[in-house]
Amino acid sequence: MNALLILVPITLVLAGIAVGLFFWAVNHAQFEDLDTPKILPLLDAAPPRHGNDDAPR
């Protein structure tokens, strides 16, 4: 059962770390806008082949 004495506290510590990460994310406004960031992957280097015109109307 010694393994438990390690595993369970580690689980609790990890839960604490998860909470810490979550707080950091909340404080840094990571959850305020859950729509816009989705286009981040499409922002860099536009496809070079053709100038497609889905620009805002």
């Binding site: 806008d33 729509d35 816009t36 989705k38 981040l40 805002p56």
Partner: peptide, 10 residues
Amino acid sequence: AQPRRVLQLE
């Protein structure tokens, strides 16, 4: 209104 605008400004 435009997501691209938002990111751009950001």
